[in-house]
Design a protein around this nucleic acid. Sequence first.
DNA 1: TTTCCATGTTAGAAAACCTAACATGGTTTG
DNA 2: CAAACCATGTTAGGTTTTCTAACATGGAAA
Lengths: 122, 122
Amino acid sequence: MGEKELRKSMAVFPIGTVIRLTGLTARQIRYYEEQELVFPKRSEGNRRLFSLNDVDRLLDIHDFLKDRFTMADIRQYYALEKEKQQRKEQEMTDRQVRRLFQDELLSESGLSNPTVNSHNLR
Amino acid sequence: MGEKELRKSMAVFPIGTVIRLTGLTARQIRYYEEQELVFPKRSEGNRRLFSLNDVDRLLDIHDFLKDRFTMADIRQYYALEKEKQQRKEQEMTDRQVRRLFQDELLSESGLSNPTVNSHNLR
DNA sequence: TTTCCATGTTAGAAAACCTAACATGGTTTG
DNA sequence: CAAACCATGTTAGGTTTTCTAACATGGAAA
């Protein structure tokens, strides 16, 4: 995860800030969490902490609702999105594994400097 | 001001978040404000609200202090920065005024379509 | 040494947030 | 239609967070 995505996923906003940022009410935000559509972290004292991604998602949820989708619909939508994302990530690691394997072959066959593997470079 | 700078100057973080983000103590943060080095906004209920720019500045201030600069030094430094910035902005508006003036001349002399001024294009 | 400077600590009050419960006005659904 | 459901409003009582103000402290400067 890059620096930018990391910043966007940092849980830093208490609910009051999110209310100002989104125009939603506390009730709505808490209900969306109860419905497992967003997953804010918690402070030591149990106060909700939202990330920028959470804020985006809250706005998306509200748009869906305005378009007369139900919470269950939205939950399912995000479940599918998550699966897609996970397949993508699996593809990435598969590719990395193949690359590692290839490196091994190269170094063992003596075609490459045996003390240096390409995936260690940079 | 572009969209990005606008986001960075939005006062959205309560002090607790800033504490987590910077590692500074509440005492330090409040003292830096008392010394007029940062200027957080206030919520309706009088709680401090910081922007990302404020967070950056707090970290900078702390670095200056670690380098044994005094608050007065830092205050002066930022005063100079501000002047520089203001001169720059004045330059910009001067340039705009000259351009507007030029446009007027052109349109009145009939060299340009009188119903369209170039600074209105795009 | 005395003073100053940046920060720690404490106390009491107010704001913000928490959960849980009940209320309500539109949908669906039987 | 009546009953059930859904998204949201409202209220109450309790906890956490933040506020200001004041006094304490250790190291640097005068």
